Deep mutational scan, measured.
Amino acid sequence: DETGKFLVLALYDYQEKSPREVTAKKGDILTLLNSTNKDWWKVEVNGRQGFVPAAYVKFL
């Protein structure tokens, strides 16, 4: 159920650099879980949760 969740689009490829991050490919649609940090947003992609740089994604 996606009610109340926001989707964001990956603008660039991002390769995770730590276990707390997730890899995303340009064009991926990610479920935004938390955007309270202006630099790192928590997302879910391909069943995995983790952080990506906020500058790499935008709201749909």
Score class of each variant (00 low, 15 high):
26 K>N: 05
20 R>A: 12
34 N>P: 04
7 L>D: 02
11 L>V: 09
31 T>G: 04
55 A>K: 14
19 P>L: 11
39 D>M: 12
60 L>F: 09
36 T>V: 10
36 T>W: 09
25 K>E: 05
48 R>A: 06
37 N>D: 15
39 D>Q: 10
13 D>I: 10
56 Y>D: 02
30 L>T: 01
3 T>A: 12
27 G>M: 03
4 G>Q: 13
44 E>L: 07
51 F>W: 14
16 E>L: 05
13 D>C: 12
60 L>C: 12
58 K>A: 13
34 N>Q: 09
27 G>F: 06
3 T>V: 12
51 F>S: 00
26 K>E: 08
23 T>H: 04
17 K>Q: 13
27 G>A: 03
24 A>T: 15
22 V>S: 02
49 Q>N: 05
9 L>M: 14
35 S>Q: 10
2 E>R: 14
37 N>K: 04
13 D>L: 08
17 K>F: 05
16 E>S: 15
30 L>Y: 06
31 T>P: 04
23 T>P: 04
23 T>D: 04
41 W>I: 08
38 K>P: 14
40 W>C: 06
43 V>G: 01
39 D>W: 14
12 Y>V: 09
33 L>Y: 02
12 Y>K: 10
13 D>F: 10
5 K>P: 14
13 D>A: 05
35 S>H: 11
26 K>Y: 06
12 Y>A: 10
8 V>K: 00
57 V>D: 00
15 Q>I: 15
55 A>V: 09
29 I>L: 08
23 T>V: 03
15 Q>M: 13
35 S>A: 14
43 V>M: 01
18 S>T: 11
27 G>S: 03
46 N>L: 08
58 K>G: 12
31 T>K: 13
48 R>D: 03
13 D>P: 06
57 V>H: 00
8 V>P: 00
55 A>E: 10
14 Y>K: 01
20 R>F: 13
54 A>D: 02
18 S>E: 08
40 W>G: 00
54 A>L: 05
9 L>Y: 10
27 G>V: 03
3 T>L: 12
51 F>D: 01
13 D>H: 05
46 N>F: 07
27 G>I: 04
57 V>Q: 01
42 K>A: 08
42 K>Y: 15
4 G>V: 14
7 L>G: 01
24 A>F: 15
13 D>Y: 11
